[in-house]
Design a protein around this nucleic acid. Structure first.
Lengths: 239, 239
DNA sequence: CGGGGGTTTGAGTCCGTTCAAAATACGTGG
DNA sequence: CCACGTATTTTGAACGGACTCAAACCCCCG
């Protein structure tokens, strides 16, 4: 199965490997980090960093959710990722040595820390494993699957919306005994549209369609999927 | 300006910084590399590595050109990169520790070297700068710009084809005094279609359109652009 | 000289867009 | 807590671009 939209994931992949880039530091390194990082409280809707700004370090989310999006030359905004607690933000631009290619905005209230450039440099120098960790993270984050399905060809808006729900279900949905799935999704219709690469009108129509088919009902930020099976069926491009 | 399709580029960014990952090695490291790398001659059309294969190391192209493409669940092939001399292949999957997410195929005869996994490990351990180099390379290679314009929304096939020509011009076009631009592009129509995310028929029609408008004429692998200015104009989404 | 893959052209259809208007939700201030 | 103004979402209608299916054409190569 393949999805339009990928969550940024931390990678505690094997059960007892709970690894984040901040967990392998020596006491001195941890102290440096703690001393120099800058706390930032970002209420819902506020930006954490902005497209075209020069990175001043790497952000780390302690609490909250941020949406990554980008505005292209023709003025269309496309969202391409959600970042949550324990994950880093802006590291790609930092390591590329380029301006931010995207804007990060708080979907809900966020507590983030900025690890300044100088601290990053010191940590990378003193701790070779850190670069390796980021290497793995970026390599996994940015496979060719990204975006390839965004193109109009083949996938309809309906299939894409269903895929989005499937991607977001682990993080945002509560599963009940009877197979019901209930989402509480902090996303506006416009943001959903932006993630799917379609217009808001098309999202509204598709939502209507899914409701009529009994696949999912949308009420504001609350989405109810009566049967996961039907959702999975609807994810099949053919038929 | 923003393009659908990005060439993988080496990054000798400042004039006197001609840096490749293989240039900063100690004599011992260079000897190891030279001793353990495996030469592979790949004639035109043959594959260098295949989607879903497990990486057995990192490839480095000495001569030739390779096309990176991916087949998605619905069977559509999408090409998303061209790799040339001095560049590496397959490093993203290697560092991600995942199967290849794409297939690399020789567009023209290629001479490539496989740096085996064990060698990579030794080099990364003995040379911390190597991980940093790859980090920068992958971070630059894979910005959010990738793929975001692939989606059908907004950009027409015509604009996308023009963008593709603009991206490829530095590598594949000869510029003449009178402003004429002559491409010799080792790509089939199908491959162009695959890069733009449209059907081959649409490519044919678009080529026809560009010829009628006097923007570019396509004859097999030979493309003539009479005036770069017109091409640049045609790249503007609006109007 | 005859395949045969690749390319071009044609016709019809469908999906998503745009523009416009109605309806609903939201937040702010009274 | 309600009322009002504004932003967002929903619905409708018409248009357009790209897709599919199908057939003709064209090279290239044997």
């Amino acid at each position: 199965m393949e999805y339009v939209f990928r969550l940024r994931a931390t990678y505690p992949l094997s059960p007892n490997e709970v690894e984040t880039e901040w967990s392998e530091f020596s006491p001195a390194e941890a102290a440096l980090l703690d001393r120099t990082r800058k706390k930032r409280l970002r209420p819902r809707g506020h930006t954490i960093f902005q497209q075209n700004d020069d990175p001043s370090g790497v952000y780390w989310i302690e609490a909250g959710l941020a949406l990554l999006s980008r505005i292209d030359v023709s003025g269309n905004e496309t969202a391409f990722g959600i970042v949550g607690p324990g994950e880093t933000l802006g590291h790609r631009s930092y390591f590329a040595g380029e301006a931010h290619a995207a804007t990060a905005r708080a979907l809900i209230d966020c507590r983030v820390y900025l690890i300044p450039e100088t601290t990053m440099r010191q940590l990378l120098d003193s701790n070779p494993a850190l670069a390796r960790w980021f290497l793995r993270t970026i390599a996994r984050d940015r496979g060719p699957r990204d975006g390839l399905l965004l193109r109009g060809s083949g996938l309809t808006a309906r299939v894409r919306l269903v895929h989005l729900l499937l991607v977001l279900k682990d993080r945002f949905a509560q599963a009940y005994q009877d197979g019901r799935l209930v989402f509480d999704l902090p996303l506006k219709r416009q943001e959903i549209a932006s993630m799917l690469g379609v217009s808001p009108e098309t999202v509204a129509r598709t939502i209507r369609q899914l409701k009529d088919e009994g696949i999912a009902t949308f009420n504001g930020h609350r989405i109810v999927v009566p049967h996961l099976d039907r959702l999975l069926n609807a994810a099949e491009p053919n038929i």
